[in-house]
């Protein structure tokens, strides 16, 4: 079935985390909406605790026990994932949508061989066994450029480096040719030299397998490298969204500006101190009524403390939620 150009559509998603007493509610994701076109790569950028990983886990429907999707819709190929039963969801996961986690060193079960863990989704979703299974596994290992795949498949995770493990995690994630791949901070736990290699690999896989990708990251460098569009999140909300060049060249939201200004520049190393954003992210269980960024915002207006700004369209694909933008 073809549902036009759009693979994934998230509408007003709210994911809240309930405290143990049932009273404290943390609004981890608070009304997030976005689209993902086929073959497109979208970056979700923000600090830790901005709700970017929670958004990803909500889409995969593998939220931790305390977290609930309170409202919203997640349309995947036109079907609402939030209305699907567990069994249906399980058939989609690993088969049509997949995910790469942050730390490859803990993404695989230490007690089982890499091969047995690569075989699992192929057995479950593709019902492969025997020679076809072995062939497919070797093929996948080559696709993520692992040398001597037959030997590696028989080894355990602790016998491999982080970079190699992340490539194997990648191989497992794409083993059933999914349409959607979510990469949650895929390079954060890797060495800088290995990071570049893995980003190359991700790019190659995306282009050769026609994947639609969501990259969750706090690193504008990673986003610039891979993404067509980025979505900047703060305190569980989307504050700015637009094509990557637009965001880089003409950021409109003060938070985006601050994030871009905090990227260390190698050319002026030592020339100035690292710039950081004053203050700290708000407590998501006790959000102020207005804009959550207001307390840290350098160009705050009186209105910002009272009312949450709506979404203002700057260009056809560029939107930002800020009273400053509306004033201009």
């Amino acid at each position: 079935m073809n549902h036009g150009d759009t693979l994934l559509q998230v509408k007003d998603l709210k994911t809240h985390i309930l405290g143990r007493d049932g009273l404290r509610v943390t609004k981890a994701v608070d009304g997030v909406s976005f689209d993902l076109k086929r073959g497109e790569t979208l970056g979700i950028i923000g600090e830790s605790g901005s709700g970017k990983t929670m958004t990803a886990l909500s889409i995969m429907r593998i939220l931790p026990e305390a977290a609930r999707v309170i409202s919203g819709e997640i349309l995947f190929n036109g079907e609402n994932l939030l209305k699907k039963g567990d069994a249906e969801m399980r058939r989609l996961r690993g088969e049509q949508m997949s995910m790469i986690l942050q730390d490859p060193m803990v993404s695989l079960d230490p007690l089982f061989t890499v091969g047995s863990q690569l075989a699992e989704p192929l057995k479950v979703h593709r019902r492969l066994s025997g020679a076809p299974l072995a062939n497919r596994m070797t093929e996948l290992m080559s696709a993520v450029s692992i040398p001597s795949p037959e030997t590696r498949l028989k080894q355990y995770p602790h016998q491999m480096s982080g970079g190699m493990l992340q490539r194997i995690v990648g191989a497992i994630a794409i083993s059933c040719d999914p349409q959607l791949l979510i990469a949650d901070e895929p390079t954060t736990a890797l060495d800088p030299t290995v990071q570049a290699q893995f980003l190359d690999l991700l790019e190659t896989l995306r282009d050769s397998k026609h994947l639609s990708v969501i990259v969750v990251t706090h690193d504008f460098g990673v986003a610039a490298r891979l993404c067509d569009r980025v979505m900047v999140m703060y305190a569980g909300r989307v504050v700015e969204m637009g094509p990557i060049r637009e965001i880089f060249d003409h950021p409109r939201h003060p938070y985006t500006k601050a994030l871009l200004a905090s990227i260390p520049d190698a050319t002026e190393l030592g020339a100035r101190r690292l710039r950081s954003i004053e203050g700290s992210p708000p407590d998501l269980a006790m959000l102020p009524p207005g804009c959550p960024f207001a307390p840290r915002c350098p160009s705050v207006l009186e209105r910002c403390h009272r009312e949450y700004p709506g979404e203002f369209r700057i260009a056809s694909e560029h939107v930002a939620s800020c009273w400053q933008v509306s004033a201009q």
Binding site: M60, I62, R90, R91, L92, R93, G94, E95, S98, M99, L101, S107, L108, D109, E120, P121, V124, H125, V169, I172, A173
Partner: peptide, 8 residues
């Protein structure tokens, strides 16, 4: 979590 991602 990753085993769940695989759809097991």
């Amino acid at each position: 979590k990753f085993l769940r991602v695989k759809g097991l």
